[in-house]
Amino acid sequence: MTGFAPTLARELRLGLCARAEIINPLFFFLMVVTLFPLGLDPEPDLLRRIGPGVVWVAALLAVMLSLDQLFRRDYESGALEQLLVAPVALYFPVLARLLGHWLLTGLPLVVLSPVLGGLFALPAAVLDELALSLLLGTPILTVVGAIGAALTTGLGRGGMLLALLVLPLYVPVLIFGAGVVGRSLAGYDVDAVFALLGALLALAVSLGPLAVAAGLRISSGD
């Protein structure tokens, strides 16, 4: 269970069995986003201005909360221990696990995001940009959050601590991600911002799994 493809397949199979793990973050995303027009004022101009930021913050929280359980099940069942003692580099198994998690939680958020953009009176022209910014951004959120999840796995009191560790690390992704639609609405060209998000994604995917692996080793007391 240490190759890339078998790990990914196992992750997807387990995830598809526990359907709540896919559906809950999605509902959470939808509900948080709904709270804002209710708490503020459903006036289209205002909604259009806060929309991208609200959708992004809600997606960020949904990804972060779903990560709390990422390694816990394996930690408790001992599967994690097995992985750590296996004589292979941890990079690919970890990457496969993160990819599996993203496919089950991040990707559905991306798919749902144009609908939510519509709820916030965003013009149809920027909806694909919103989705694309989340497509590039949510994997970064998954990888960076997984570092925090790896470090807090054995602690038994994840939630709040995980948020304290991870939220400051999410700041740049949020700024660039939510900035895409804001800039686009203001009439600027956003290719450069997409390129920046892509660069962050490349950085996260190339270095992140190493940090996650190091965090798992530390948590397991190695």
Binding site: V144, I147, G148, L151, L165, P168, L169, V171, P172, I175, F176, G179, L200, L207, A211, A214, G215, I218, S219
Partner: peptide, 23 residues
Amino acid sequence: AAGLLAVVGVINVVIVKYSVQWW
């Protein structure tokens, strides 16, 4: 554990600085 978080944080500090300036 704190060491790993600090290392990740230092990389982040640099990106935060530029992203906040841009924002």
